[in-house]
Amino acid sequence: MASSSRSILLKGIHSISHSQNIRPSSSSLRRISSFSQSRQHGKSPSKSSISSFSSCPISLPSARLPQLRGFVSSSRHQTEQGEKLASTLSPEEYEQVSERDMDILHENLEVYVEQFGENDWEVEYSSGVMTLSLPPHGTYVINKQPPNLQIWMSSPLSGPSRFDYITSKGWVHHRDEKIVLKDLLEQELRELLRRQGKEGEAEEWDGTGL
């Protein structure tokens, strides 16, 4: 029975060593063997033997220890073009910048509707959501997304899109920085005027103000 216990003990040590790349020293193995032999012959192991056994040095290689990464304040995400900065704004800055730009956009879209629209064209802004109704072309919905630090737009022409704020560029598409909210929206609204035969008005419009 003692021999079996010794065998199990040694097998367990070798198994752990192999799986975790732990290499007990030869002196450690001799101490384990001495301890188990005392048990095999029915002898109580001496205090020195017990002390020696309990202090067998088994060290983990430093390469196995997890490496702690420094906290990165800038949010990043994976896109088709690779990893890129998601936003250069803190949540507090986002709230200020997004509200400022939504107010500017609202004011200029009101001018657009009043100057060029029909009686049923209208724009409304409330609680971070802007609705621009342009029958028969459709409806734009432009809204703030604080959890993502983004502005989202649903367009009857280009469909849904999301925009991050990048310093010096403004609100840019979350997958392609070449697409800017200001440029995309202005191009589409000018195109809607051209479809109504208002080429001159399309060129005269001052734009979104963003």
Rank of each mutant, 00 (worst) to 15 (best):
I32M: 14
R194Y: 08
S158T: 06
H106I: 00
S98T: 06
T167F: 00
H14E: 12
V72A: 09
I179G: 00
E188S: 05
L10R: 12
S28N: 09
K178P: 00
T131K: 15
S90M: 08
Q37T: 15
V180G: 00
P66I: 03
Y94S: 04
S87W: 03
P160W: 02
I32F: 13
K178A: 07
L68H: 09
E201N: 13
V129M: 11
R76K: 12
D103E: 10
A86R: 13
S38C: 15
R162S: 02
L132N: 04
I142F: 02
I8F: 11
E203M: 14
E99C: 03
M1P: 10
G12E: 08
P136C: 07
E93G: 02
P147W: 00
L189H: 05
E93I: 00
V172T: 12
G82N: 05
K178E: 06
E191R: 14
Q40K: 15
Q67V: 14
T88W: 02
F163K: 01
Q78A: 07
A202H: 07
Q81Y: 03
Q40D: 15
E83V: 11
S48M: 10
S3Q: 14
S28K: 06
S55I: 01
G117M: 03
S44H: 11
F116P: 00
N143C: 06
E93L: 06
Q78E: 11
Y140D: 01
E188C: 07
N143Q: 10
I13A: 11
I104A: 06
F116I: 01
V72T: 11
L185H: 07
G200L: 09
L89M: 04
L134R: 04
G70P: 03
E80T: 09
R100L: 07
P147D: 01
I166Q: 07
E124R: 12
G12F: 12
D103R: 14
R6I: 07
K47S: 14
S44A: 14
G200P: 00
F35Y: 15
K11E: 11
T208Y: 05
Y94E: 04
H14V: 04
E92M: 02
Q115K: 11
E80P: 00
Q187R: 14
S5C: 06
E107Y: 05
S127E: 15
T139Y: 03
A63Y: 12
G209K: 08
S87M: 04
E83I: 10
L105G: 02
V180I: 15
T131D: 06
S17H: 03
K178V: 00
L192P: 08
Q150W: 01
S34I: 08
P156M: 01
S87E: 03
E186I: 07
S55T: 14
I16S: 08
G170N: 03
Q81E: 07
S46V: 09
A63W: 10
V123S: 11
K84N: 05
S34N: 12
S28E: 09
H174Y: 08
M153V: 14
G117P: 02
L89E: 03
S168P: 00
K182W: 04
I151N: 00
S161C: 02
K178C: 02
K182Y: 10
Q37P: 04
